[in-house]
Design a protein around this nucleic acid. Structure first.
Length: 483
RNA sequence: GGCGCGUUCGUCUAGCGGCCUAGGACGCUGCCCUCUCAAGGCAGAGAUCACGGGUUCAAAUCCCGUACGCGCCA
């Protein structure tokens, strides 16, 4: 049997990090088993679903570097052998199956109003009973039913759960989980407002789309027994389920906005690489016995399995994410890195400025970047006027003799050639000897004068890239500033 | 409230009855390298395996409770 997995987001917001991980795992599993990965948009919540959200979700998945074999092309159209993949376009299908269930006596009309349900729930809580629907309309007599119909009462449809026995969810991550049927309530599968309900659509689509493995978040585990019963009522075999643990914020509660970035696109905008996200998310709740940390995509696909998934929730750790991003930035060829950095350079206003090729300056500082967004601030002094940090002024420049060093250096370098790394190092070391100065007494003021900072790239290669004119004039400017 | 799930260094985790004096990774500390900052190398601190009972010659690993956290049901 061909493996088919799916990710089925509700387009009511952005793709958050938990959804991204679910997508990744589903994708990896499909790729690993040479199967197909399907995207389905669960837009039955008409009020909250938006096109904008669909776009954001598709963009997020694409940015992550994941692809889907079937599903939406954009917020309007879709393609694939099981189309449509937008649930709102499938309502007729759901209605047909509803009728099938009604005919089989597996679904019934519920005339209870919201007020009545609220009251029942309230009473149940007062009496310390579980606040679940007790199946009142399930036991309606024919005359009661006729009376409601005659009165034109609105109704929903509920699925009739078995009242005896237990439903076993044989979960690939958690093992066999047993639920007492008598404790489950009859779920609404068709709303009073004339529309199918999430749990119902999900069952029908997963079956019709021939999904073999449903990989989804922990929060769906409790609904799974009801869904399994629906499969059976419809005469279908349920797929294999795998419920992923949640992702928590640093304080141990469910990861949310107040913990910082949660939307995939925010991570993009902060300068994380897609491959970092793939690798980090893969490891957040999954591991190999060797505890391997860094993976290529091929590696991930070859090694990913549901058995390696953690049952307990995982805390999202930005520090480790940043380490990994730095790791991948260092692995990225410079040309590619510059291309990736472009939006950030542009935003920082460095893009059109005269100055050295970004390839040179970015390469020079590459091992320091943890985020693409940090790149501009680390190379900006090549393009913008020098801004002296307080530390550079106090600790390095405003010390006795520093001004003279700068002036002497300017003089020594103004005609020096070739203005190149090794030659410069030899010349400046010789300069130290001539003036009987320790290298630190020369190197540090020099760096501070041309960059305005005490921290920066390796000195001589940086001077080469700056070029003689810039170096000499900055030395003079800094000396002048020292008065 | 009911049902379900979970609990190994600060964090992600390895572990599936003896190899565990609990391994790795991030972070942290120190040292080395060195023109600064990084990167890199080396070393180190850090977990009575939530707690309490069992089972067993032997338990982080199996069983039962308790606590705490979380999810679903509204």
């Amino acid at each position: 049997m061909k493996v088919r997995t799916r990710f089925a987001p509700s387009p009511t917001g952005f793709l958050h990090i938990g959804g991204a991980r679910t997508t990744l795992y589903s994708w990896l599993f499909a790729r690993r088993h040479d199967g197909q990965f399907v995207l389905r948009i669960e837009d039955t919540d008409e009020v909250r679903s938006t096109d904008r959200s669909v776009t954001a979700i598709l963009d997020s998945i694409k940015w992550l570097g994941l692809d889907w074999d079937e599903g939406p092309i954009d917020e309007k159209s879709d393609k694939g052998p099981y189309a449509p993949y937008y649930q709102m376009k499938r309502v007729d299908i759901y209605r047909k199956h509803l009728q099938q269930l009604v005919a089989a006596g597996k679904a019934y009309k519920c005339y209870c109003t919201k007020e009545e349900l609220d009251e029942m729930r309230f009473l149940a809580q007062l009496e310390k009973r579980p606040p679940r629907y007790e199946g009142r309309c399930r036991r309606l007599t024919d005359s009661q039913r006729a009376a409601f119909e005659a009165a034109g009462k609105k109704f929903s449809y509920r699925f009739m759960m078995p009242t005896e026995g237990a439903t076993i969810v044989d979960d690939r991550i958690r093992g066999k989980v047993s639920f007492e049927n008598s404790l489950q309530q009859d779920l609404v599968i068709w709303k009073t407002t004339d529309g199918p309900t999430y749990n119902f659509c999900c069952v029908i689509d997963d079956h019709l789309m021939e999904i073999t493995h449903v990989i989804r978040g922990d929060e769906h585990l409790s609904n799974t027994p009801s869904q399994i019963q629906m499969y059976e009522a419809l005469g279908w075999t349920p797929p294999i389920f795998a419920h992923l643990s949640m992702i928590l914020g640093p304080d141990g509660s469910k990861l949310s906005k107040r913990h910082g970035a949660t939307s995939v696109l925010e991570f993009r905008d902060q300068g994380y690489l897609p491959r970092t996200m793939r690798n980090y998310l893969a490891l957040l709740g999954w591991s190999t016995p060797e505890s391997q940390q860094l993976f290529t995509d091929e590696d991930l696909i070859a090694k990913f399995d549901l058995a390696g998934c953690q049952k307990s929730p995982a805390t999202f750790d930005t520090v480790k994410l940043q380490w990994m991003n730095g790791e991948y930035i260092r692995q990225t060829p410079v040309d590619e890195l510059v291309t990736l950095a472009e939006p950030f350079l542009e935003k920082a206003g460095l893009k059109g400025l005269p100055g050295p090729d970004f390839k040179k300056t970015v390469a020079l500082e590459r091992e320091k970047f943890k985020l693409l967004s940090e790149i501009p601030s680390l190379v900006e002094f090549f393009y913008k006027p020098v801004v002296f940090t307080p530390k550079a002024m106090n600790k390095v420049l405003e010390v006795p003799g520093a001004k003279q060093v700068l002036l002497d250096l300017a003089e020594a370098l103004k005609d020096f050639a070739p203005f190149e790394d090794k030659a410069l190092e030899a010349r400046i070391r010789k300069f130290c000897e001539e003036k009987v100065l320790k290298v630190g007494q020369v190197f540090h003021p020099l760096r501070a004068a041309v960059t305005g900072r005490t921290e920066g790239p390796t000195l001589f290669l940086m001077l080469e890239i700056m070029g003689r004119d810039m170096v000499v004039s900055r030395l003079k400017d800094a000396a002048a500033k020292l008065g």
